[in-house]
Each structure stands twice: as C-alpha cells, then as structure tokens.
Nucleic acid binder design. Structure first.
Length: 107
RNA sequence: UCAGUCAAACUUGUGGUCGCGGUUUGCUUGUAAAAGCAAAAUGAGGAAAGUCCGGGCAUCAAAAGACGGAGUGCCGGCUAACGACCGGUGGAGGCGACUCUAAGGAAAGUGCAACAGAAAUAAACCGCCCGCAAGGGUAAGGAUGGAAAGGUGAGGCAAGAGCUUACCGGAAAGGUGGAAACAUCUUUCGUCACUGUAAACCCCACUCGAUGCAAGUUUAAGCGAAGACAAUGUGCUGUCUUUCACGUCUUCCAAAAGCAACGCUUGAGCCUAUUGGCAACAUUAGGCCUAGAUAGAUGACCACAUGACACAGAACUCGGCUUAUGUUUGACUGAAUUU
RNA sequence: GGAGACGUAUCGAAGUGGUCGCAACGAGCUUGACUCGAAAUCAAGUUGUCGGUUUACCCCGGCACGUGGGUUCGAAUCCCACCGUCUCCG
C-alpha cells in the first residue's frame, strides 16, 4: 500500500482544506481522505537547507512515521518543515511528530 | 622549534536489528500485461555543486560557399576536443623554496586622452642669448600632468641643443646557438621626430551551423475539417547564394499529459604491469563490470576499532576549470637554538 | 535537469569610461504656507557609514553603484571569478 502523496494538485488541496497544527519546527496539514488509506507528503523548501540536508530531514520524518505506533486515521497529511528543523536531534523530531499527530487525531 | 613553499593520498571499516531503490534467482496469483513474497550480492562525490569552457549523443532531409557574429591570441607539444594540461621563452613579485602572467599588431587606418598646463601629438608662456628697437636664435631651467621630441656626466657655445664625446638605452643589418619563441655577439646609425589606449573600433592568424536528454523515439490510433501561400513557394532558427529535396504553414476537433516504455548506462571506462617520452600523454599485455531513481532510493539504534565530528546528495554522459571543505603524509626553503 | 535576465538613496528608476554620484527624474519622508482641522496643492529640504572638529549643529575628509580581483592616467560603466534575486522550457 502506497502511503505517499505525490501530485501537486493533492498538495494544494490539502493546503487549502486541511487543518493546521504547529510545533517549533514543523507544521502538519490534515484533511479527511475518501479512500480507506492514509497518505503523507513531505514539503521541505529550499529555505531549509541545501539538498543533502533536505534529503536527510525527509528520510528522518519518513522513518519516524514508519516506526510510529500511534493510530493513523484515513486522512491525507502534509508535513511542512520550518527553518531550523535540520539542526535538531532525531529524538526531539520524533516527539514533535507524535505531538502533531496526537493533536490532529483528537479533533 | 617557528615561519613558509610545493606535491600526493584518504573521505570510515567490521558485525547485528528494523526499513528503502533497482538487478538476478526461486515460489505464488493472473488469459495476459503485471503484481506479491523470499533469498543473494549490490546501491552517491572529491567536489556529485557553480554551469564557466570543450567533446560524445540526438533532432533540424543532405551538402558546399560568402558575408555577418562569437571566441582564442609568446613558442612547441599533448588530446576526441578545449580557453584545460605539459615543457620552454620573455616580463613581474619573493632573501629563498617558488609563484603569477588576456604576453600578437599602436611604423595600415579611425576614435578617445576630462581637469591641470603655454603647449597633449602639437610646440614656445615664463625664461636664456643676440639686438637701441623691430626682429631673430634656443629648448638648459620652471610649472602641469599618467604622458611634454632618449637619460646621466664632461666638453662645447652668444645662449643652447646628439652639436661632440663616454656609459646606459634605442633602431637596422649580419653572424652564432636553438625545432621555435628567443638568447647572445659584431658592425653601422646622432635624420636616434612619430606618447598612451586594441579587457576602444580595428588589422593579422587560427577555431566555431543551430538547438540541448524538458534533445528526441515508440506505444499511436485521422488517408478529419477550415483557412493562407503554392514552384516567382517552402526547406538546418543572423543574412544570402548554389547543388539538392519536398508541398509547407496556421487554427479547430478527436486521442494523449505519464501514477507508459525506450533514450539510461560498457565507457575517449577503471585497476595492475610493461615500453617510449623531461613531462602532459601514448603503446602493449592481463584482469574487472562498479547506482540508474522519477515527490526522486542510503535512515534509525547498538557494539568494537582512542573514535567518526568538515564541505556536501547522481538525474544522459565524459575531459577540464572555479568555488566550499576535514584529516594525514612526503619533499624543499628561510630564521633561531643545541650537539 | 537545462537555458536566460537583473542587482545604483527608504522604494521605483536614469546614468554605460572623465571636473568625487551638487547621484538626474518620480514616489516616499520632514518642515513651512494654505485650512477651524485634515486631504489635495504650492515652496524648501532629505543617502548611509567611519574619522576629525564641536556641548550640539555646521563644516572638512575617507569608504561605499551586490562582493572581490584585473585592464586603464582614471571604472557604476570594460574584463574575470564569486554572492543574491527573478523568469522561461516537454
């Protein structure tokens, strides 16, 4: 099952309709999906860093989501990185992601 | 020991747990295309970057020439090619190791040289000298400037001046060395005036068709419709000509927008040795196959090695350049101290 | 991935070798006039920073046209290398 969000149309739909949640270094957009599946896209702009740093951040986020044990609703998500997200520790990042999903799933 | 110059190498490794990309093999499902599971080996760089040069490759039907435009610019070599590289020459810098150098032509022509200064490529303001004066001689000294008709000393003169002479510089001719750039020597020239700028136009020599893998090909399906110009037409996209080829272009509709494939990785490839060459590089022999993604594959955790900590991520591909950056090693130079 | 363009006061923008950019011109800002008050209009002024001088202002000088080199007597302008911003493509 493919959990990736790929098309630019899908991203802009989530930005437009999604609910926002923030932490210090991340923003999560979430919106209900019509499929019985969840999909996540990662948006990391050029402001964040050079290509290798952006790549690494994306991998870490993907790893965190893969290993996570909290329940995921059938939503479409977009995780947007803020400036400074490449500098923080893996465990710190993990906490922030968990926090975001907890908030999003409560509502 | 301190300060410095040049060159070279490496860019974690091994084992374990979970996870990702393509490849191969096996099994399962499926009419097929393909999908799923398992195993194995394998999976970013020295700069992958900037895109500053040069090739391969692809398309423009094929080919040749002229003009325009762009680039290069001491000499020779190397190369697929280059503005790169190697060796040498001249010049500049450094005590030195060594480094830097867009380094053809200003006597083919044109342009420009503000301000200052008497005068800017042309000479006479102040001055000096002759002369009663008119006028004439002169360019030593003055001031300006980036630049003022070789420089310094001596002689000479009415005062001066290559006017004469010594040295330095310059030009021409010839000899010698060198493959050449050039070096060096000899002789002659004082009629030895002709500044700078070509990273101003330009001249000379050499090179270059244009567009870039988002090139382009296939799946692919329409002898669709309308219009324009039609052999005086169209054709490699700066312009033109010749050969040559052929109908060409625009709009609309249908289909398609890649969550399809090919291009896409075996290549001027890498490693080791040999031979030629001062070297760049080339020859020969043997061995090796080493990423091909498409929202874009390498991450997380643990152990050991003192311990993994800089810059940084392939996107058709190769040769350079430039910029960013960690560690280590070698050779050499200068200074100080000790033996 | 590839191909291009542009960086000059607070902002837009001219200048494309020569008396320091009196930084043109426009907008903005400040002050004054007009008005009961404001807007509009009219007039005047207005780059930054460092140093000197000064209680302070005035005044004087240096550096700045994205940054750093080079060519030239002289560079915002010509050449080279970097930095930043923006646009285009099947």
């Amino acid at each position: 099952m493919d959990h990736r969000l790929k098309k630019e149309k899908q991203f802009s739909y989530v930005y437009r309709r999604g609910k926002k949640n923030h932490t210090d270094h991340l923003t999560l957009f979430s919106v209900e999906s019509k499929f019985r599946n969840y999909r996540i896209g990662y948006a990391i702009s050029k402001k964040i860093g050079k290509a290798n740093k952006r790549n690494k951040l994306k991998r870490r986020l993907r790893e965190i989501v893969r290993k996570s044990e909290w329940p995921k609703n059938f939503h479409n998500y977009v995780i947007v990185a803020k400036v400074g997200a490449t500098e923080i520790e893996y465990k710190d990042l993990q906490k922030q992601v968990k926090n975001l999903f907890d908030k999003a799933n409560q509502k």
